[in-house]
Computed example of a mutant assay.
Amino acid sequence: MADLNTPSKKLSALVITYNEIGYIEKCINAISFADEIIVVDSYSTDGTFEYLENHPKVKAIQHPFENFTAQKSFAMNQATNDWILFVDADEVVSDKLQKEIKSTIENPNACEAYWFYRKFMFKDKHLRFSGWQTDKNHRLFRKSKVKFTDKKLVHESLEVDGSSCILNEKLTHFCYKNYDDYKGKMLKYGRLKAKEAFYKEKSFSYFAMLFRPAWKFFNHYIIRLGILDGKKGIIVCYLNALGVLERFKELKRLEKKNELTYFLVMP
C-alpha cells in the first residue's frame, strides 16, 4: 500500500479573500481536512484578515490585488504540497466532496487536474438554472502539472500538462449574499474583462454594447431557464447582463484614456 504521508499525497487548500467575514468561517471549516490551509487576503477592512490571522490552522498572507489570475498564481506559489485544492471564500466543500477529494489524491492513477461542478446558492436557496447549471471549474490539481493562463484576468483558467477529469460531488457556491454585493461583483468582473479585451486590442462597439447585455439576459433567463428560478432568476440574470454592459462601458473609457495619452505625448 502507498504511504499516504508522503508529500505527493498531502493537500494544500488555498483561498483568496477580500471582505469575506460573512462566509470565510464556513469555508475554512469545510477545508480543515487539508494538511495545509493558505489564505491570501488583499487587505480586507471588515475583520476577515484578523479572523484568519488568529485561526490555528490557517497561514494568512496579505498581498495587493492586481487581478484574479495574478492573485491565485501568487497563492499557489506559497503552497508546500503538490496537490492543490482551490476554493473561493464563499464556497463550501461538503462532507461527501471531502471524501471524494481524499480518495482521489490517494489514487495512484489519478488525473493531473479535476473539474468541479458547482451548486449555486441564492442566499440560502438553491439557484437551479439561470445559466449556471453547466458551470464547472478546475479546483483540484497537481501544482507541478498546471499553471494559470496569463490571457485572463478574471474567470481564470488552468493550462494542464496532462489529463483532466470530473469529480462527482458538487462544490456549494454561495454566490448571492445580497443585491449590492452581487452587483459590485459583476461590475468588478466587467471592468476586468474590459482590460482583457483592451490588452487583446479589441475595439469598442456601440452595437456590441447594446446587443451583448440584452443577449446575456435573454440567453440566461429564457434559453438557460432562469425563468424557472422565479424572482431569483430575474435578479441574477439582470445583474449578469449589467456586468456585460459595464465591460463595454469600461472598454470605451480605456480607449478614450489611451487616445488622450497618445495625443499628450505626441511631439
Rank of each mutant, 00 (worst) to 15 (best):
A2T: 14
N5A: 08
T6G: 10
V15R: 04
I16Q: 06
T17E: 04
N19E: 07
N19P: 07
N19W: 02
A30F: 03
V40K: 06
D41Q: 07
S44E: 02
G47H: 03
I61N: 11
F68Q: 12
T69R: 15
K72P: 11
S73A: 07
M76G: 05
N77W: 03
Q78D: 01
I84A: 06
L85W: 01
V92L: 11
K96T: 10
Q98E: 13
K99P: 00
I101P: 00
K102G: 00
Y114W: 02
Y117F: 06
F120M: 02
F120K: 01
D124N: 08
H126A: 00
H126N: 03
F129Q: 10
W132C: 05
T134Q: 12
D135S: 11
D135G: 14
K136T: 09
R142Y: 07
V146P: 03
K151I: 05
L153E: 02
H155N: 08
D161K: 14
G162A: 07
C165V: 04
C165H: 13
I166M: 15
E169C: 13
H173D: 03
Y176M: 00
K177S: 13
K183L: 14
M186T: 14
G190T: 05
E196I: 01
E196K: 05
F198L: 10
Y199Q: 14
K202R: 12
S203G: 15
F207V: 11
M209R: 15
R212F: 09
P213C: 04
W215F: 15
W215M: 07
W215K: 11
N219C: 04
Y221E: 00
Y221M: 00
L225P: 04
G230T: 05
K231M: 05
K232A: 06
I234V: 15
C237W: 04
Y238V: 13
N240M: 10
V244W: 02
R247F: 09
R247H: 15
F248E: 07
F248I: 09
K249M: 09
K249G: 07
R253Q: 13
L254Y: 03
K256E: 14
K257W: 08
F263L: 15
F263S: 12
